[in-house]
Design a protein around this nucleic acid. Structure first.
Lengths: 191, 191
DNA sequence: ACCGCTGGTTCGGTGAATGAACCATGGAGG
DNA sequence: CCTCCATGGTTCATTCACCGAACCAGCGGT
């Protein structure tokens, strides 16, 4: 958001937080990072955000220590952005916003995604805890995302959206190119 | 944020939430509402936000059912904005962002405010629960705000900031004009 | 030599945020 | 009656961030 003057004058933690993650698109980038999106083009395809803005947001988040830019391939230089520990600690805030939206801003639409505690398989409560295990906060690495009734939307047919239709663990890399059984590896190599 | 096109295309609860509360200044307005700020001029004095923007934000929040506009005085018509139940349910998200900022974006500054569970007097844990009572989430009405070491800042000497230096309960109206013991009522009448 | 993919940067146009000024209502004081 | 002040706004010119489209660079494949 870079509130040139307004926020800077505020000495509140919230204001400083919003200076980092309160800008347009930033939280959606972080959300996608939790869902396992890692590459520039995947963020771009899924969020449909102008590339310049995406570039700026990834830069800001990396500078703030929320994402880390890693070269995962040398031959053709390929980079990926992954959440740092600091970034992963944004999960409670992210989940709280998401849960509020589910309860108050969904307009009777069917639920799009379930969040399940991987250990016991039950749905997270609105506070992000596991009612079964008595955990107050389930860490994102122990959460599985499953598609709900409203998951498959006729718009959003890009590979990333389709990859998100399959159940997967938070933070684990999203497999963008899965055709049939076990074809992922072949595909990845053949590109 | 009114993401004209980008967010609208997203069918995610987070995107819809951010359309409401993700705009610049909006979360700070909500935070102040939790702290007990209710009047237009008090929001303006404390946040130092352009009046036009504040007007727009209060309008959006009222329309979204997060705040309610109430006439609290007829004679000279005076209005106040108070959180609705829907607005109060934003507390977990707000606290999570605040706690993250305290942990990761405070740059070794002394803590500005403590949040105490009113029933037992102990500080809230990072998840917004009470470690003593075993409560997963303490509702905002049961939370007391106390000034921390970094509370009194030489800037921000407006009446609202000074009022926030005194311990008070969340959601209860902030007493902006308290001079000495029990003088509040006299002051309010003499204006 | 040419094409395509990834990961960007650059650029002109548009819409939102900003700060300052102005306005309307309704006391209070003289 | 006239003026002053407080509250709660609105209007307006300027500035700034976002937008979409185009362009570019490194590398691989054919």
């Amino acid at each position: 958001m870079a509130l040139k003057k307004g926020y800077a004058a505020q000495h509140c933690s919230l204001a400083r937080t919003l200076e980092l993650v309160g800008e347009r698109w930033t939280m959606l980038v972080v959300r996608d990072a939790f869902y396992g999106v890692r590459r520039f083009s995947d963020f771009q395809a899924h969020l449909d955000v102008p590339r310049a803005v995406l570039s700026a947001r990834l830069g800001t988040l990396t500078e703030a220590g929320i994402l880390e830019k890693r070269r995962y391939e040398q031959a053709p230089p390929r980079d990926e952005y992954v959440l740092t520990e600091r970034g992963r600690q944004l999960w409670p805030a992210l989940y709280a916003l998401l849960a509020w939206g589910e309860a108050h801003a969904s307009g009777s639409r069917p639920v799009r995604r379930y969040f399940l505690h991987q250990a016991c398989g039950c749905r997270l409560d609105p506070a992000g805890g596991c009612p079964e295990c008595g955990l107050g906060t389930v860490p994102p690495g122990d959460i599985e995302v499953h598609p709900g009734p409203g998951a498959d939307h006729p718009d959003r047919q890009d590979p990333v959206s389709r990859a998100m239709l399959r159940p997967h663990r938070l933070l684990e890399p999203l497999d963008t190119v899965p055709t049939g059984s076990g074809a992922a590896e072949q595909q990845r190599n053949s590109r």
